[in-house]
């Protein structure tokens, strides 16, 4: 297996942040290729050859291209040495780690749906206010479960400490705060601050540049 420098195709503020942040946590150098959501760069043939569904992130690594951030996170943990970001197969925290990793994407889906309604449907008549309401409520319920998990005073999702599940979740929590008020979630707020204070998180932010999604800190549901 070759371990040449990977190339990450990314949009600032998208799920690709998870992968970039993890690469920074692992100290792996990466070539970054930036795309914009609205300039058609995702529709170019060269990108379609890499990611047939034309989505970011796409990661070229060890001679193959991956298109799922969760798979990239798992693969990097399995193949890059000298870290404690993943409980190995058979470890007692393995099931929990896998669950949080996938749960981050359950939240990610809700955020993606809210992004579509709030950011990408330009005409209010195109939106469905019931869908926006349901998605916001679901996201709040999913965050409440996280708040409950953190209520025992643990610093990270796993009792044993920081792991790649936090990298998956950290991006999601950052994005979710644009749609759900965190006032009722003190543990989650502290968790988010703890993640954002990590050197690798800040390094990834600097590498990625200005996020392209949100022009406001908070998007309230439209008045009916």
């Amino acid at each position: 297996m070759t371990t040449s420098k990977p190339t990450l195709h990314s949009i600032a503020g998208s799920r690709s942040f998870r992968v970039l942040w993890l690469l920074c946590e692992l100290g792996v150098d990466v070539d970054l290729v930036d795309y914009q959501i609205t300039d058609g760069s995702l529709q170019q043939d060269g990108f379609k050859a890499l990611s047939p569904a034309r989505r970011v992130p796409a990661l070229e690594i060890d001679g193959i291209t991956l298109v799922e951030s969760g798979a990239m996170v798992q693969y990097l943990c399995e193949t890059r040495a000298d870290h404690s970001l993943m409980p190995a197969v058979g470890n007692e925290e393995r099931a929990e780690w896998l669950q949080w990793l996938h749960y981050a994407e359950t939240l990610g889906t809700g955020i993606q749906n809210l992004n579509m309604q709030h950011l990408f449907l330009p005409d209010p008549a195109m939106r469905s206010i019931p869908v926006m309401g349901i998605e916001t409520k679901r996201l709040a319920i999913a965050l409440k479960a996280l708040e409950a998990r953190l209520a025992d005073g643990r610093a990270y999702l796993l009792a044993s400490g920081f792991s790649a599940a936090d990298v998956m979740m950290g991006f999601t929590v950052w994005a979710a705060a644009h749609y759900v008020d965190f006032a009722a979630f003190p543990n989650l707020t502290a968790y988010q601050d703890r993640l954002a204070a990590r050197a690798a998180y800040q390094q990834a932010q600097a590498l990625e540049g200005v996020q392209q999604f949100y022009t406001r800190d908070f998007y309230a549901l439209p008045e009916v």
Binding site: I64, E68, G70, Y75, E105
Partner: peptide, 20 residues
Amino acid sequence: RAPQSDERMAYLDLLHYGET
């Protein structure tokens, strides 16, 4: 497909693609 398998990357990618 175990971590040392040649198909591990594709296995993980497709497994997560199930939810995409």
